[in-house]
């Protein structure tokens, strides 16, 4: 375990908490894509299936449970909470999940480490995580005006990915047999998707004004 990896996990958790607190405090989920949240829950559930039989460390197990619980809470708020669900931007959040789920499932069946149910679900979760932010980015693009907390959420998620890349570089340099092409390539794609958003986020931050995406 290195400092990059720990920072990444904490940033990931922070991003989810920022979103959860925003929803809880403002009783509004305006600007948040339910599709992306549901895809993330699917990512966590398919990746952390081994929670029940593969114990690696308390650190890992606690994070797994917390990720599943907090993203379930976000979805619960958006779908079930009486006040919050009325603020959900259903008309703009129209991205089809099947466009992401089907290609990821097919790719996981073809390109995987070993042909077993657990391995294929795990690989599927790696591919799906790479693209799960797309409905959220499309929603931000459509609504243009991004409120601070939603902007911070996407920014923290991007930082989390960037720190995972640093972690891989560090591990590759220090651990003799460390190699994971599927994870690295997916991680690079995922981080790449944030770059455009990062550019506008940092510009808005430098000029200390509200984040506005171009048409």
């Amino acid at each position: 375990m290195n400092i990059f990896r720990v920072s990444a996990d904490i940033l990931h958790l922070l991003s989810i908490l920022v979103l959860l607190l925003k929803i809880h405090a403002t009783k509004s989920c305006a600007g948040i894509s339910l599709k992306t949240q549901e895809l993330y829950l699917a990512v966590f559930v398919t990746r952390y299936l081994d929670l029940f039989w593969n114990f690696h460390s308390l650190y890992n197990s606690v994070f797994k449970v917390v990720y599943i619980a907090t993203s379930s809470m976000i979805i619960w708020y958006m779908k079930r909470h009486r006040g919050v669900k009325q603020t959900y931007d259903k008309d703009h959040d129209t991205f089809r999940y099947l466009f992401l789920i089907v290609p990821c499932a097919v790719l996981a069946l073809i390109v995987n480490g070993r042909f077993s149910l657990f391995e294929i679900l795990w690989t599927f979760s790696i591919y799906l995580e790479a693209v799960a932010i797309l409905p959220q980015l499309v929603l931000l693009q459509r609504t243009k005006n991004v409120d601070n907390l939603t902007g911070n959420y996407v920014f923290l998620l991007g930082l989390y990915r960037a720190f995972y890349i640093l972690n891989w570089i560090y591990r590759y340099a220090t651990e003799p047999h460390y190699s994971a092409w599927i994870v690295w390539l997916s991680g690079l794609v995922q981080t790449g998707l944030y770059l455009d958003f990062f550019y506008y986020y940092l510009q808005a931050w430098k000029q200390s004004k509200k984040l506005q995406l171009p048409s």
Partner: peptide, 10 residues
């Protein structure tokens, strides 16, 4: 074994 190392990440 290579795959197992990766699964220690979240």
């Amino acid at each position: 074994a290579a795959g197992e190392e990766v699964k220690d990440e979240l």
